[in-house]
Nucleic acid binder design. Structure first.
Length: 776
DNA sequence: ATTGCACGCCTTTTT
DNA sequence: GGCGTGCAAT
């Protein structure tokens, strides 16, 4: 018997050794799920199953790579390489590419991201002369997305009077027409959105029995991780593919189902037994990850949910510290508490930053945490949020590359046809769109034949369009002999894209140039990487990677350790020794949008459960009594989840604030700066829960006068207050070096200084953001 | 056709 | 507090 089997506990081993037939593994948080999946695949291969016949669907591409790596260690890398592993989206994008012609798509179809989809829908709403306040593009996209994930095609929609009635009652009778136009336009553009990757796969398997048979035969063993988060569309794909051999193994935890909003159907896991009556069920209930205080605290909360499978998570680990609950006065103080606490834990226990994670409900919360960490000089990395690839300058360059591959890509074309400005304005684009719709051709086709088609565009503009097409076609020819990096580099040079970014001279512009450079480097790395591993290094493959990459996939190693900042959703599947969960306030977590129904609230509770069970050694839960939201100060109540934790496992602590903060400028951080080493919280105090949660600490008011005095004293000491900077000052900027102030303009937050830097020349900087130090 | 500014909406969460 | 859109000015 292989040695790795000895490393498993009883239920884990049983799950690994169950080779054939349908099975479900209910895997509690931290119960060694990945280990089981890894060994299970290794075991299958040892039993003579060809890796070509194994399909493993994971939640992130990174998880797939790591698992492949671990399997490689057991059975050999050359064998493991042949496994099909990846996310639903990336695996089926690959299959769709090779079968695209069946569906009338080009094999190099574009993948539209959410931004592309929203822009297209916005355009359609405008073209249809509909009120964009009534038809909110994002809302419409969500609705279309839920149609697609339930396999409701345009035709199905128009055959379903209930759906149409619902849209009519919502005063959006044209929803179906928008849906139809959106689908048509995507098709004409040779583009699929995220949901299409699943919907079209279903279409492919349903319409072409030979294709279905081919993949059924190919994927004799199918494993699906995070099964609780699959939606109906994914569920149908899996069921179709597994239908012939029925060797289907799904792994999941109903308590960690947190993607209901994007169509995940918890029933998929709850009803698995109904679909496969002879299913074997395994339960992994021993948690190896966390202290028993954390496990018990988490259990006590999730027990409040009615909808759940029967299981009891337990651990043999030590009790460990209590879960700490911390009340702070503001979101600013919350951030400083987190930073201070991380710093102390690092000092006291000799820990590196990568042992810490800060988790929050919404991306917007990261700001306060970032500010505080930066002030303490603690390195961090943000996952999610606005991704690198969403930035305007990056999307613009990528759009050029997309056009080379697929000239029909309408969204890419609209982005770059007049960027950098070449005198092709909105009016011209509108005319082109109308012609494209009229002749049922793509916009690019119209432009290509601009001289033979009857459009009301003047000769000068026609020449400009001609030049544009010629340029694109030149790139296309070059692309046949050059690699992705050389092409991207050529595009940047020929279009003068960087020059355009440079000419505004602002720090933002500099940053954008750096981003473009980073993208070029990224393409270079991609190519080297793929050539080394013998994989597809084409531009198409790069663009697909970009479209489907998650933040974790680009995770660079050999960097210095950093604190991880991310939403709770993104933290699923990860673990950290020290976890801070911030913003535990009513209307934020649970979210105000999710408190209307029991099932929404239960999903929020599962989300909290996921957050808490990320922690190995210690968990800190914080909430703020006031918080800036939409730029306004708002009051908050402690989250109900705090009260739901069994009191035996928690402890309340209060930050010691040296001076109550009066406003943003007179923030406590100003006072802290020179005493960072002092331990800043009081010893943990156990208070009565109700009393603690109910107590409101009102900041003591300082009279505005003394306030201002204190402020200016401080600022003169610390060079942080913009009032100090005047003409002729010599200042220091952390990127541009030293310079002389030439002029000051604007006031309040818009106050700018014009500075002559010795390195980069004249710059206008917003004092609010440019952390300038007066040095003379 | 481009630029600058005011306004409004925004924030759940992601492939 | 931030971004995109729409409108007015040039």
């Amino acid at each position: 018997m292989s040695t790795y089997l000895e490393q498993l506990n009883e239920p884990q081993r049983a799950a690994v050794l169950q080779k054939d037939g349908p099975m479900i593994i209910i895997a509690g948080a931290g119960s060694g799920k990945t280990r089981v999946l890894t060994y299970k695949i290794a075991y299958l291969m040892e039993q003579g199953v060809d890796p070509f016949n194994i399909l493993s669907l994971t939640f992130t591409n990174k998880a797939a790579r790591e698992m492949k790596d671990r399997i490689g260690k057991v059975v050999g890398y050359s064998e493991a390489k042949n496994l099909w592993m990846g996310t639903f989206h990336s695996v089926f994008a690959r299959i769709l590419r090779s079968e695209a012609d069946r569906l009338g798509y080009p094999s190099n179809f574009t993948i539209y991201d959410t931004q592309d989809s929203v822009r297209l829908i916005t355009a359609i709403i405008k073209e249809m002369n509909l009120d964009k306040d009534r038809y909110k593009p994002k809302q419409i996209l969500n609705r279309i997305s839920s149609f697609k994930n339930s396999l409701i095609t345009v035709r199905a929609y128009f055959n379903n009077s209930d759906l149409q009635q619902a849209d009519l009652e919502a005063s959006r009778p044209k929803t179906g027409d928008i849906y139809k136009e959106y689908v048509d336009r995507c098709f004409k553009s040779g583009a699929m959105d995220f949901d299409d990757l699943l919907l079209r796969t279903n279409e492919l398997l349903a319409r072409f029995p030979d294709v279905l048979a081919k993949y059924q035969d190919r994927f004799r063993y199918i494993l699906v991780d995070e099964y609780q988060d699959t939606n109906h569309s994914q569920y149908l794909i899996v069921r179709a593919l597994a239908d012939r051999f029925q060797n289907i193994c799904v792994v999941g935890d109903d308590s960690q189902s947190i993607y209901g909003f994007r169509g995940a159907n918890i029933q998929n896991i709850l009803n698995f037994q109904k679909d496969y009556p002879d299913v074997k069920t395994f339960k992994l209930e021993q948690n190896y990850r966390s202290t028993s205080n954390i496990v018990r605290a988490a259990n006590s909360v999730i027990d409040k949910n009615k909808t759940k499978l029967d299981k009891e998570i337990w651990t043999a680990n030590d009790a460990g510290d209590s879960v700490k609950i911390m009340r702070t006065i503001s979101d600013g103080e919350e951030g400083r508490f987190v930073a201070q606490s991380i710093w102390e834990n690092q000092m006291n226990h000799q820990l590196t930053s990568d042992q810490f994670a800060v988790l929050y409900r919404t991306n917007a919360q990261s700001r306060a945490i970032e500010d505080a960490l930066r002030k303490k000089d603690i390195k961090y990395k943000i996952y999610g949020g606005i991704s690198f690839y969403q930035r305007k300058e990056i999307k613009d360059l990528l759009s050029y590359l997309r056009i080379l591959i697929n000239p029909n890509d309408e969204e890419a074309l609209k982005r770059i046809i007049n960027y950098p400005a070449r005198g092709i304005g909105a009016t011209t684009i509108d005319k082109l769109l109308i012609a494209a719709n009229h002749y049922n051709k793509s916009m690019f086709d119209i432009i290509k034949n601009i001289n033979t088609i009857d459009v009301n565009i003047n000769a000068g503009t026609k020449t400009k369009l001609q030049n544009f097409v010629n340029m694109i076609q030149r790139f296309q020819i070059e692309a046949q002999t050059k690699n992705a990096f050389e092409i991207a580099d050529l595009v940047v040079k020929q279009t003068q894209l960087v020059k355009d970014l440079q000419k505004d001279g602002t720090p933002e512009g500099v940053n954008k140039v750096e981003n473009v450079q980073e993208l070029l480097n990224g393409i270079k790395d991609f190519i080297t990487d793929k050539i080394e591993t013998g994989e597809d290094a084409s531009l198409t493959s790069f663009l697909e990677d970009v479209a489907l990459a998650t933040d974790f996939d680009s995770d660079k190693k050999d960097e210095e350790p950093r604190v991880s900042l991310m939403t709770i959703h993104l933290s699923k599947g990860l673990e950290f020794p020290y976890v801070y969960i911030v913003g535990l306030e009513e209307n934020l977590f649970p979210s105000a949008m999710s408190m209307n129904t029991r099932s929404e609230l239960e999903e929020e509770r599962r989300l909290f459960y996921v957050a808490l069970t990320r922690a190995e050694k210690a968990a800190y839960l914080t909430y703020a009594q006031t918080r800036y939201r939409w730029g306004k100060l708002t009051d908050g109540e402690p989250s109900r989840f705090l009260e739901e934790i069994d009191e035996r496992y928690v402890e309340y602590i209060t930050p010691k604030t040296p001076e109550p903060s009066m406003n943003r400028f007179l923030d406590a951080s100003l006072f802290e700066e020179d005493t960072p080493k002092k331990i800043r919280f009081q010893k943990p105090i156990q208070k009565k829960r109700k009393e603690f949660l109910a107590k409101k600490e009102k900041p003591t008011m300082i009279s505005p006068k003394s306030n201002m005095k204190k402020l200016s004293e401080l600022s003169s000491k610390m060079n942080l207050f913009d009032g100090e900077i005047t003409v002729d000052n010599i200042v220091e900027h952390n990127r541009f070096g030293t310079g002389k102030v030439i002029a000051i303009e604007g006031k309040g937050p818009n106050k700018k200084a014009e500075i002559e830097f010795s390195t980069v020349g004249k710059k206008k900087l917003l004092l609010q953001f440019a952390k300038l130090k007066v040095i003379g």
